[in-house]
């Protein structure tokens, strides 16, 4: 349960309409994931500050329960934090997460900086969401107060909107 926080701050998160910067990050100690590999399907990027902190746990746990919903839109979910690949592996195993957690570890927070969601003071990612369309364009972005689990309502609304637009083409 999270307390509300009226101080939503947008920072410099890349807005809708911007091409999503490509990146390649480790998803496990010996595997990498490249964003452009998912061209042709929507991608949900969920930046979060850290593995193991209670709120992240809730947020990632919630998304973990929703993978079938995301799949209905053909969307791939990727979690991103500055934690190392071994840390992600332990966290994913502990929480039984069934989606990739990417490690923005070296150079630290480089991808978060590209997306404008780096918290300089703490050296971690913001709690930020991006929905990227099949052509690699950001269609929705949202930065949550760092202590607040943003849930998934916004992601689903954005994915639905994408689907409606592609159907009306």
């Amino acid at each position: 349960m999270n307390k509300p926080d009226s101080k939503t701050h947008h920072g410099t998160a890349l807005p809708a309409g911007t091409p999503a910067p490509d990146f390649s990050l480790h998803s496990t100690p010996d595997q990498s994931v490249k964003l452009s590999e998912f061209r042709g399907q929507p991608v949900v990027l969920a930046f979060y500050p850290a593995d193991w902190s209670p709120v992240c746990g809730d947020q990632m746990a919630l998304y973990n329960e929703m993978l079938s919903e995301f799949q209905e839109y053909g969307a791939e979910l990727l979690g991103i934090s500055v934690d190392g690949a071994w840390c992600h592996a332990a966290f994913a195993r502990d929480r039984k997460l069934h989606f990739p957690l990417l490690s923005d570890f070296e150079p630290k927070a480089e991808v978060a900086k590209l997306y404008g969601v780096h918290r300089q003071s703490e050296g971690v990612c913001e709690r930020a969401l991006f929905v990227i369309d099949a052509e690699g364009i950001i269609r929705w972005s949202y930065v949550s107060p760092v202590g607040v689990n943003p849930g998934a309502a916004g992601i689903l609304a954005a994915l639905e909107d994408l689907q409606n637009k592609s159907e009306s083409k």
């Binding site: 939503t8 947008h10 998160a13 807005p15 809708a16 309409g17 269609r139 929705w140 972005s141 949202y142 930065v143 943003p150 849930g151 309502a153 916004g154 609304a157 954005a158 909107d161």
Partner: peptide
């Protein structure tokens, strides 16, 4: 979805 609403709280 309009860009100006893209950072609204769900």
């Amino acid at each position: 979805m309009k860009p100006e609403t893209s950072i609204a709280i769900p």
